[in-house]
Amino acid sequence: MTSDATTHGMAGSPRDGILDRLSDTFWRRPRLFLALLLAPPLLWLGVVYLGSLFALLVHSFFSIDEFSGLIKYELTLKSYAELFRAANFDIIVRTLTMATSVTIAAAIIAFPIAYYAARYAKGRWKAAFYIGVMLPLWSSYLVKVYAWKLVLAKEGVLSWLFSVFHMEAVLELLLATPVIGGSSLSFSYIGTFLVFVYVWLPFMILPTQAALERVPGNLLEASSDLGAKPAQTFRKVIFPLALPGMIAGSIFTFSLTMGDYIIPQIIGTSRLFIGQAVYAQQGTAGNIPLAAAFTVVPVVIMAFYLWMAKRQGAFDAI
């Protein structure tokens, strides 16, 4: 006790432990500490992550020799031209349409849930909200997708529910709709869409709820005090302040849908989405440059989307 007190208590006394000396050094040179703290994540992000992304970008500017099937290491835009061939362009349009629909649907479903959680839920209900939203994320993605296949199948729970309420005609009408219909829900775009919305919904709810949580209640009172009807308060105050959170959520739902290759393979038609195209091109087809070019598409679309959102002032409320 006494010796401890003298060594630690007095300024300038010699320190014996290496950790003591290390912490003293860090205290004197805070920048060194920061550098050491950031070095591993920066190495990871800079070399492994950005490096691989850069390698991908470079590959998209190479091409494949049609006879030998080998990559020609010469810079060319051939792979990008390939993307605009009808068969490939269809894949892009299909994926983009799906990602947009999923994002809009997720935003519409997520908003009331997030609003309830941010404004009204307290204590135990708030905990229930978080568990309810996160619970689906705890189980395997594949399990959930296969479960949905059973739900959506021709003899599945959903068809049965429709028949219980004598609404088979509605389901048949839905499935008879051109393009989005099919032989059953699990073999239609409607099915793919439903599963995408289900799987990515938490990623929309949580950021939206976080944004709404930061809107003080008295702003809503101020708005109505100044004469605004509830709908006007929503348009002028709540929505603009929730928008940054919804954009953050849409980045998740949009890019996750754009890149996914498992859901459309298990549920839906045999027509490809970008993720599946990348998978096929780099695997069986062995066309790495085209696969790379496909992968660049979502990156470009996301960058464009964020740029537009910023220009429209979506982040002004941050």
Partner: peptide
């Protein structure tokens, strides 16, 4: 409701719209 009263309020923490 508040929006149909000819009354206006200065709030304690001002409640200005941040955006």
């Amino acid at each position: 409701p508040p929006n149909r009263r000819s009354v206006n309020t200065v709030f304690q923490d001002y409640a200005l719209f941040p955006h």
